[in-house]
Write a protein that binds this DNA or RNA. Structure first.
Length: 466
RNA sequence: GGCGCGGUGGCAGAAUGGCUAUGCAGAGGACUGCAAAUCCUUGUACGCCGGUUCGAUUCCGGCCCGUGCCUCCA
């Protein structure tokens, strides 16, 4: 049996994945702060962890995938002020949009999608634990995590505390004992959202919600914690500090999550796609341009998850071709059955994905299967196996092979008169029979104007949308 | 300034101490009334300089270049 391997950011090595509990795999990925439309960077993270979940499910019966919604944050408060809307209206709206966009990309909903505002009591409890353990202190209405109390701080991002201070570009707030200390709780003014707490009315800092929600829904330690590479520091570093220190695990960074997986970000013309540079693309905009969500998914999986991925029109058009080919072959071979593959056989088919989610290799495997399925010198028994392998790979990658027909005939869903198309094809066939090629070509042009491409094959003429 | 990542053929992008990645684009051929699709064949690589080795794109060192994090960010 091929072993599943992932690159663990905590050890900076590719490691064989060994579940804490083989009967139940537990996975957490940091989800979005909901104050705006999601962009392709959010999409990359979601697609990669959805794939990771699929891959784990091919080997383990139960996988719990938790991905949160952060619905209390200063950015949301700012947005509320700007628009004059209620905070809860904003978070509800953008949570719904996020989930719609993720579904369009072929992602399944997480097993659990906890909301930060439903966990304030647990956050307060954990902050109290940290104060009791001597890792946090109250100051001027704030509660801060005292970084010097945790000598192993910085182990994930690989930077010592001194290095951070040397490079710090932030002004050190007066209420901090140490420049590296970070906020667990902060006071809210009357017009700001807040919850009662032992330190007065206030709201949580940015990192505590993930520590609390992952622990509550998965238990500690859990198998895999992930997110975008830019969360490594400070977000994930601080999560580790909170969770390890709240439970007396100061000596073991892996007492929170065993394996850390970070995806690389998207670039545009070589530069990071980011809000500050203004070069980000919303998922919604790409979908509105008519690009299928599964095409976006393919594009996001076209490079190793760890590396930067450059977003371009050319990438989309390549992936459109690839998806069309996959779906076409699946439909063309529809009359060929499938067989149940043995566990060993499935392992071989999924070997690329088991090897640190090597999606480019999986794409190469798909291309090989497509070619073999279209060759004339392959027996139908062999094709039955090949087709089974192809469907397994497509399912695991989340490519929705069951949507093949719908995708290829998309035009007929709305405006197209299917009967008229068939009538014109029949007319053209008659014209061809009579060697009236001028008439046949005129009919082809007419259909082309309707958005229909004809394909003459040995079994007759078929059509698809342009 | 500190820490990290990467430099592969026209483009995108993997693996690998010696043997074809794959895809897109290009060239030639088959098929086709036309068109599309498909199939067959095919060219072009491994940033620079040293080292280790029988042999390095792959390991080690130096250099150059690009890029990311250190501040909200997937």
């Amino acid at each position: 049996m091929a072993q599943i391997q992932f690159t663990n950011s905590l050890t900076r090595k590719k490691e064989v994945f060994e579940p804490l509990d083989p009967t139940h795999i537990r996975l957490y990925a940091c989800g979005p702060t909901v104050y705006d439309y999601a962009h392709l960077g959010n999409a990359r993270m979601a697609v990669i962890f959805d794939l990771l979940r699929n891959v784990l499910e091919t080997r383990y019966e139960k996988v719990t995938y938790v991905s949160n919604i952060t619905d209390i944050d200063d950015k949301i408060m700012t947005r509320a002020k700007e628009t004059g809307k209620d905070i809860s209206d904003i978070t509800k709206l953008y949570t719904a949009i996020y989930n719609e966009d993720m579904a369009a990309l072929g992602n399944r909903a997480p097993t659990i999608q906890p909301h930060a505002t439903d966990h304030v009591a647990e956050m307060i409890a954990q902050i109290e634990q940290l104060i009791d353990a001597g890792h946090a202190y109250e100051s001027d209405g704030h509660v801060l995590f005292h970084v010097p109390s945790f000598p192993k701080y910085g182990g994930l991002s690989g930077r010592s505390r001194d290095e951070q201070i040397a490079g710090a570009r932030v002004e050190v707030a007066s209420y901090k004992k140490d420049a590296a200390d970070f906020v667990l709780w902060k006071p809210s003014s009357e017009d700001e959202p807040g919850w009662p707490s032992p330190w007065g009315r206030g709201r949580p800092g940015w990192h505590i919600e993930c520590s609390v929600m992952s622990e509550k829904h998965l238990g500690l330690p859990f198998d895999i914690h992930g997110g975008g590479a830019d969360l490594k520091f400070p977000h994930h570093e601080n999560e580790i500090a909170q969770s390890c220190c709240a439970h007396g695990n100061e000596g073991d960074l892996s007492a929170f999550a065993k394996t850390w997986i970070h995806n690389g970000f998207l670039t545009v013309e070589g530069e990071k796609m980011s809000k500050s540079l203004g070069n980000f693309t919303l998922i919604r905009d790409v979908l509105d341009e008519g690009v299928d969500g599964i095409v976006i998914r393919l594009a996001l999986l076209s490079a190793s998850y760890k590396k930067p991925l450059d977003w371009s029109k050319e990438l989309i058009s390549r992936m459109e071709k690839m998806l069309k080919r996959i779906y076409t072959v699946i439909l063309d071979t529809a009359e060929i059955g499938t067989i149940d593959l043995s566990e060993t056989h499935k392992n071989d088919v999924l070997a690329a994905l088991y090897n640190d989610l090597n999606t480019p290799q999986a794409f190469a495997d798909i291309h090989r299967l497509l070619s073999d399925l279209e060759r004339g010198d392959v027996s139908s028994e062999d094709k039955e196996v090949l087709r089974s392998e192809l469907l397994l790979l497509c399912d695991t990658l989340g490519l929705k092979p069951e949507n093949a027909e719908n995708y290829l005939n998309k035009a007929d869903a709305s405006t197209l008169d299917k009967a008229l198309v068939q009538k014109l094809i029949t007319e053209r066939d008659a014209a061809k029979q009579n060697k009236d090629y001028a008439r046949a070509d005129a009919l082809r042009d007419e259909l082309k104007d309707m958005g229909i491409a004809l394909k003459d094959g040995p079994e007759g003429t078929t059509w698809e949308r342009l």
